[in-house]
């Protein structure tokens, strides 16, 4: 609980900071305008992102054939999708590549963190979660 409280603190501060920036941005809007009237640094809208931890249920682990289904499904989404094997402490790999997926060496019971960023990130994670 202490951890959560300490995590919440900085997040609240950041939120306040953002609000302050927005307020000062409103006040100083004129400075950010280019001669032609456009904003000098338009903020890009944040991409939707979604992350989930799944546990490999297949007794044979994540093998080539089941991996193919994962890669095939992942490839149907625009979002950038990564996976990391938390049980082996691997770095995140591109889930749209079978050779990288095999690097996870995922066995039954291993926890994999799936993360997607992009317009269809939520749908991608929901669909992929059902494969494990």
């Amino acid at each position: 609980m202490e951890n959560r409280a300490s995590q919440a603190g900085p997040q609240e501060e950041r939120l306040e900071d953002n609000q302050q920036h927005q307020q000062s941005g409103l006040r100083n809007n004129a400075r950010n305008l280019l001669p032609d009237g456009r904003l000098a640094q338009p903020e890009t809208p944040p991409q939707p992102s979604k992350s989930v931890v799944v546990t490999v249920s297949d007794p044979r682990g994540l093998h080539l054939r089941s991996g193919r289904d994962v890669v095939r499904l992942a490839s149907q989404f625009q979002a950038r999708i990564t996976a990391a094997n938390l049980s082996r402490n691997t770095s995140a790999i591109d889930l749209k590549s079978i050779i990288q997926l095999m690097q996870l060496q995922a066995r039954q019971g291993h926890d994999l963190q799936l993360a997607a960023t992009g317009p269809d990130a939520v749908a991608a994670i929901e669909a992929l979660s059902s494969l494990f």
Binding site: L64, R68, V71, R72, S75, I98, I99
Partner: peptide, 14 residues
């Protein structure tokens, strides 16, 4: 390894 990976990714229509 190349044959396996290529066959799989080719089957995805890449």
């Amino acid at each position: 390894e190349g044959a396996i990976v290529a066959a799989l990714h080719a089957s995805l229509g890449e």
